[in-house]
C-alpha cells in the first residue's frame, strides 16, 4: 500500500486549501500521493503541487460543470491509478469517494481524525465514541479538515487527461442561498444561537460578530424549530450539520447531546449562557456565565478592535 490517490477538494473553481492537509494524511499513511483534480479548466491544477506528493493529474471533462455523483465517479475512476483513495470529509467528497470506492470494490472509512500507519481512527455514535480500524489493503478514506498540517506548496507536475462520464442527473434550477454569508459546513469559525436568543431578530447580534470574524452563523434545533426565519440549513447537530471549525461560539445554547454531536470536535469552543450549570460549559474551552445581552456587545467591540 505505497500508492495513494488524493481526490482534490475544489470550491469556487479552485483547489481548496484542505487538499494540502490530505497530502500530510497520505504521507502519515506511508504513501506518496498522486493528486487528481476534477475540473473543466485544467489551469486550476497548476496550484495543486505539494512537497511530498507525486504528480498531479487534471481530469478535465464537461461532467464536472455540476456535481453528478455517477459521472464524476466514472471519470475519476478511469483517470486515477490504483491505490488507497483519499478525499476531504465534506458531504460532496464523502459521497463521491463512496461511489469511486464501490467501482473498485474498496471499503470506505469516513471522517478520519487520526492516522497511525494503516490504523485509522474516526468518531462513531456522533462522536460519543472513537473507533480505530486496520486496513489490510487499499481502501477509500475521507479525512476531516483542520487536523493534519497543510503540506507546503511546490511546483506541480501536471498532466491533463480529457475524461468525462455520462451525466445521470440534470440540474433544473440553482437556488442561491438567501444570504451571501458562508454556510456553516464551509466555515472555519461559527457563531451559533439557540433558543436563549429569545427571538430571531436577535440573531442580528450574531451576524455582526460573524461579519467581524468572517464566520458563519449557525443555530440549535430549538431555534430552527421555534422560528420560521431561522432555516434548517443553519442547524448544527445530529439532525443538522456536523461541523469541525477552528472556533465554535455557542450563544444561548444549552448543549444537548444532539447539538454536541454536531460540533463537539470543534478545535475551540466558547459558550455564552446565563445558566452556570448548562451542559455546554463542560465542553467549552472558554465559558462565560452571563446573558448574551450583556456579553455580545463587549465581545463585538473587543473583536472589532483586534481585527481592525
Amino acid at each position: 500500500m505505497s500508492e495513494s490517490i488524493i481526490i482534490a477538494e475544489t470550491s469556487k473553481g479552485a483547489v481548496a486549501p484542505v487538499t494540502a492537509e490530505l497530502v500530510s494524511a497520505a504521507i502519515a499513511m506511508g504513501t506518496t500521493p498522486t493528486i487528481i483534480v476534477p475540473c473543466t479548466d485544467s489551469s486550476i491544477a497548476d496550484n495543486a503541487g505539494f512537497e511530498g506528493a507525486g504528480r498531479t493529474i487534471a481530469v478535465k471533462g464537461g461532467c464536472f460543470e455540476n456535481y453528478d455523483a455517477s459521472s464524476w465517479a466514472a471519470a475519476i475512476d478511469a483517470a486515477a491509478p490504483a491505490g488507497t483513495l483519499l478525499a476531504a470529509a465534506t458531504p460532496q467528497s464523502k459521497d463521491l469517494l463512496a461511489r469511486v470506492a464501490a467501482r473498485r470494490g474498496l471499503a470506505v472509512v469516513q471522517d478520519v481524525v487520526a492516522i497511525n500507519g494503516s490504523n485509522l481512527t474516526s468518531p462513531i455514535y456522533s462522536g460519543k465514541a472513537m473507533q480505530t480500524v486496520a486496513l489490510s489493503g487499499d481502501a477509500a478514506v475521507s479525512v476531516r479538515a483542520n487536523i493534519f498540517p497543510a503540506a507546503n506548496a511546490s511546483g506541480a507536475d501536471v498532466s491533463v487527461v480529457d475524461q468525462s462520464g455520462d451525466v445521470a442527473t440534470a440540474v433544473q434550477e440553482i437556488i442561491a442561498r438567501a444570504s451571501a454569508r458562508l454556510d456553516v459546513a464551509e466555515a472555519n469559525i461559527i457563531i451559533s444561537g439557540g433558543r436563549g436568543m429569545g427571538s430571531p431578530d436577535n440573531f442580528s447580534h450574531l451576524e455582526r460578530i460573524a461579519d467581524v470574524l468572517g464566520a458563519a452563523v449557525g443555530a440549535s434545533r430549538a431555534a430552527v424549530d421555534t422560528w420560521d426565519d431561522i432555516p434548517h440549513s443553519m442547524q448544527v447537530g445530529q439532525t443538522g450539520k456536523t461541523v469541525n471549525p477552528n472556533l465554535y461560539i455557542a450563544v444561548g445554547i444549552s448543549g444537548a447531546i444532539q447539538h454536541l454531536a454536531g460540533m463537539r470536535s470543534s478545535k475551540y469552543i466558547v459558550a455564552i449562557n446565563k445558566d452556570a450549570d448548562a451542559p455546554i460549559f463542560a465542553h467549552a474551552d472558554y465559558g462565560i456565565v452571563a446573558t448574551w445581552e450583556e456579553t455580545l456587545p463587549v465581545l463585538e467591540s473587543a473583536l472589532s478592535a483586534m481585527m481592525a
Binding site: A107, M130, R264, H283, D285, Y286, I288, T291, E294
Partner: peptide, 25 residues
C-alpha cells in the same frame, strides 16, 4: 478488508476556563 481494532471513549477535553459576567468577553 477493514477490521475494527478498538473502540474507546472520546478523548476527555481538559477543563476549560470559566468566567462570570459579560465584561469577561
Amino acid at each position: 478488508s477493514v477490521t475494527v481494532v478498538s473502540q474507546s471513549p472520546p478523548p476527555a477535553k481538559p477543563a476549560g476556563k470559566k468566567y462570570e459576567g459579560g465584561d469577561s468577553a
